[in-house]
Design a protein around this nucleic acid. Structure first.
Lengths: 225, 225
DNA sequence: TCAAAAGTGTTAAGTTTACACCCATGA
DNA sequence: TCATGGGTGTAAACTTAACACTTTTGA
């Protein structure tokens, strides 16, 4: 009884979160400057351990919440990282998740308490363990997903201008986009709705505010079989 | 010392393999009709457990080898599956991998000993635990990868006709392709080389045999930055 | 009045799709 | 001689890419 399992070793299972945020036209990651062991003083992803009676997806949500105070955040699993010596302290098999958060709406106090900072994705410091590798994979995956599904809106406030949306996608793709072609494409997406509100904060003339309508998107998908 | 880790629980970490093979124009999975507990008598993926001092990728290779006798097989991680009750016997967090093998070149005796069988991907029986879910994700991922990288060749012998190649991609995509358009596309891929050999097994006239040249492919990729 | 961001269409190039017949051979 | 799978080109539809000027308004 239980023999099938019990001849095998057991492992700590970690969770590491690649937290994307977008502000001032830049794509950033929320990284910890660790004020705790192991690897105190170095940069790392926010992490933690899966607990007994906890789904791994729930562990990821919990750990994201511990740092940001946020719930109902868009998260995707990146994969498992299980090299023997990836964590020099102990054998830990880690599952990485990326999260897309609205960089206006997180708990600043919690973030400060963890000594976490937003760092531009193109200017990342060296990270501990295999965290750089996790970030690379997360970024690739996110980019790919963003090009086929409307996940970018998770990084924006509810209302946004087309200029903001364009600069977000430019940051995600790492290349500049043609303004007219971009707007033409957006105009063909019925789930991106123009509102009658105007944003005057980033130009004198003012720019129309748009909104993502997930219901319209989902309806549209049904017909795409 | 060790306190950072030791307050956390440890888990069995499993590996499950989605093994794709192609024969007679059909895409198949190698599945076990389990002649052992748990879930004896039911269908499952080939699986096993990560061992101490074993990278998870190496565990996947080992487990694939245990069933097929093969080494140096194309494998990709699908992801980690960590719901609390996914395995009713014990808490096990599993990492799924898919493998693409040449269905002519595996150890038939080993496969028989494990009571494993090739099953058409469109006629899968119910699988234990969350294995059906793993297969779905693996299939989606493989399909996506196959449309952007030349991984299909892992499912074919070294030499193959264009008809075989086409029927492989039709099986992967789950749709028929236009013969002329398909051949036009292939003709533009310099890394698919026509040989002077002829296959007479599947037609009276005989069909030219082609070969995948990975070196040419890699060279080509360098210029695509 | 002018600097700065918002907004707006057209054309060319490239890619994808649709489509039908002749060829070579062994049985 | 005929059934079977192998092999070939062109035109239309669609998608993507390139490109520049006018508008509005607060400072």
């Amino acid at each position: 009884m239980g023999n099938y399992y019990s001849s095998n070793p057991r492992f700590y299972v970690g969770i590491d979160c690649i937290i994307f945020g977008f502000s001032n036209g830049e794509l950033n990651l929320l990284l910890l400057k660790r004020n705790f062991e192991p690897a105190k003083g170095e940069w790392s992803l926010m992490g933690g351990f899966v607990q007994a009676d906890e789904n791994t997806d729930d562990a990821a949500k919990r750990i994201l919440n511990e740092l940001t105070g946020l719930n109902n955040v868009y998260m995707e699993q990146v994969g498992a990282f299980g090299n023997v010596n990836r964590d020099p302290g102990e054998r830990v098999i880690s599952i990485a998740y990326y999260a897309l958060i609205n960089a206006d709406k997180y708990d600043r106090e919690l973030v400060q308490r963890h000594n976490a900072h937003w760092v531009n994705i193109n200017k990342l410091p060296p990270l501990i363990f295999d965290h750089t590798h996790m970030v690379e994979q997360a970024r690739k995956l996110m980019k790919q997903k963003a090009s086929s599904e409307p996940i970018g809106f998770n990084l924006l406030p509810n209302l946004f201008t087309l200029s903001k949306l364009q600069s977000l996608y430019e940051a995600i793709y790492g290349e500049t986009l043609d303004k007219r072609n971009f707007r033409k494409r957006i105009a063909n997406m019925e789930y991106i709705e123009k509102t009658d509100k105007i944003d005057k904060t980033s130009s004198k003339r003012g720019a129309a505010l748009y909104r993502f309508n997930p219901k319209v998107y989902q309806e549209e998908q049904k017909f795409k079989l």
